[in-house]
Design a protein around this nucleic acid. Sequence first.
DNA 1: GGATATATTCAACCCCGCTTAACTAATCAA
DNA 2: TTGATTAGTTAAGCGGGGTTGAATATATCC
Lengths: 150, 150
Amino acid sequence: MSPTKVLTEVIREWSEVFMQRSMRDFKRFMNETGLSFSQINILMRLVHKGSTGVSEIGEQLGVTNAAASQAVDRLVGLELIERTEDPDDRRAKRLALTQKGRTLIEQGIEARSKWIESLMDVLTSEQQNMIITALTLLSETAHKTNKLST
Amino acid sequence: MSPTKVLTEVIREWSEVFMQRSMRDFKRFMNETGLSFSQINILMRLVHKGSTGVSEIGEQLGVTNAAASQAVDRLVGLELIERTEDPDDRRAKRLALTQKGRTLIEQGIEARSKWIESLMDVLTSEQQNMIITALTLLSETAHKTNKLST
DNA sequence: GGATATATTCAACCCCGCTTAACTAATCAA
DNA sequence: TTGATTAGTTAAGCGGGGTTGAATATATCC
């Protein structure tokens, strides 16, 4: 087997395992919070980007502005995000997480993290160190390449 | 900083990066295929488990059997899964992916994999090897512990 | 063989999230 | 200034996906 084949195979395997697990946890998170996939998507976006406008939300989700506006409205109602006027362009709105929203979404990320941590428990500290190095490298690379693409 | 702190911090960072990216790609996949979160969840389950009954589906999704039955029905209508009588217990149905369904969901996994592969492109082959080893280890560990919990 | 349990489906109903279309308000440009 | 564009909201309507409750068919138990 060629080295490239090994690489893609390993990644595919890991993606499948990770997705399988994530789906289950994510569904559970949706049920617990009562939030929809799109709503969580919006909150995640805001964690990552700080603040954005309604159109950008719609664009990322691949839905119309109307849909985005409605989704935002529900989240504002739940006090998970704040919607204020953009002082520079008063047509636009600035959307940002409330503390409540931030806490909630970070709990979701924590839950995901905990699973990987639990995997670590059965490994030796050398193995753990290697994985730490690997994941750090992947995160850093992701950040660099994200800057280019987004 | 203690070693444990480093570990949790690294994992949290990676989870956030990965989730952020996954959400976007996943939503895109949903839009392209026209499938809902639950439907994809069911298909993923079948990729993983081979074949199951309707009740198990409902259980995994945390919904009633009626809801699971309806969801299954729609997927059968789309020719993504097959529903046949269980010869051992003729009250039950056996659900399995069609070739069409299998292909579709594997494309989804492929898409997820491709992102990680693209990250690899900018790394040296030593770094790549380390990541391969790390992910292999994680996958294996996940499989082992899954056997215990499920 | 009759009562009970299990697996699934059917029927009626409700809510959410999406779409299109119409509307308001602010900004830009000639 | 006015006409076009841009950001966002609102309204009406549709379909998906959820619920409960009853119906159906098969299995199991005594």
